[in-house]
Amino acid sequence: MFFQSHARTAVLLFVLIGLVLYAATGSYFAREIVVEIAILAILAISLDVAAGYGGMVSLCHGAIMGMSAYTYAILSVKFGLPTLPSAVGGIAAAAVFGTAVGWITGRTAGIFFIMATLAFGQMAYTLIFKSRWLGGDDGMGGLDRFDLSWLGINLGDSLSFAVYTVVCLGLVYLAAAWVLRSGFGRTLSGLHSNEDRLQALGVNTVIHRARALGFSGLLAGVAGILAAQHTLYISPELLFWTVSGEILIVVILGGLGTLVGPIVGAVLFVMLKHEVSEYTNHWHMVVGLVLIAAVLAGGRGIFGQIEYWAADRRRAGKEQSAEAGDA
């Protein structure tokens, strides 16, 4: 069940402000890292909504993001639509794709659900990879960023773009937290905990699984737009299943079902990747080792584990003061 504690708010603000400061004081390279973190964090939040809260461990979130990026490219480059409606279209496409996956997999669970999402993602990847119209494995270029000059902002500037992605990250977090705290968010936790009983209480769980993946897809769609606007070029690689796997690793690393944890996970993952790849080409192995350690340590993830310790200490403190009161 989702809750927004003061500690979570503090960590969230700390990371968001930290990212902005890092971008503002750092080099062009630092700003690239901030953008990478923000996009990955949005994807991780999106997956945490589905997997951490709804219990639907998806391996097609990369594909969902890619659908958004490609729709954005098709609408703006092929059809010449302005960037804003193209972005809305891209996000909508991601939401529809997510809903469809949720609907079709509505009665599968566990490993079957994971395999089904993997299949859907790879299907989308293959379709785009094979499409000449979409440039096949060459991808598509000629994309644009939003024109925010009416606000006095030039998104072509690396610092402005980095700050813009961090703002999007903040908004995505707010949207996710808002929905998780609604009646629907509560239902999602019930679905995760005991789908059968929820059904017996009168909830059509298939519809709600589809809605959950639709909403999660919508958030991943935002990341797709940012990814397209970041490099101004997209390729089918965005949809490849390893991207989805990476998102899952980030969520587990940070703390499944904590919403803030995935952001922490994204920061660590990207930092680790860049730091370690300075010394060795085998940075994947290092990430793998960290992941194994995180799983063996209880599977709560880094943020999740710290939160767990803090809650434990609070409980112990309460019991102690209760005992003192008895005496």
Binding site: R181, S182, G183, F184, G185, T187, H208
Partner: peptide, 10 residues
């Protein structure tokens, strides 16, 4: 109230 998107059923 299980489908509410903007209000907390709890």
């Amino acid at each position: 109230k299980f489908a509410w998107m903007s209000r907390d059923s709890f």
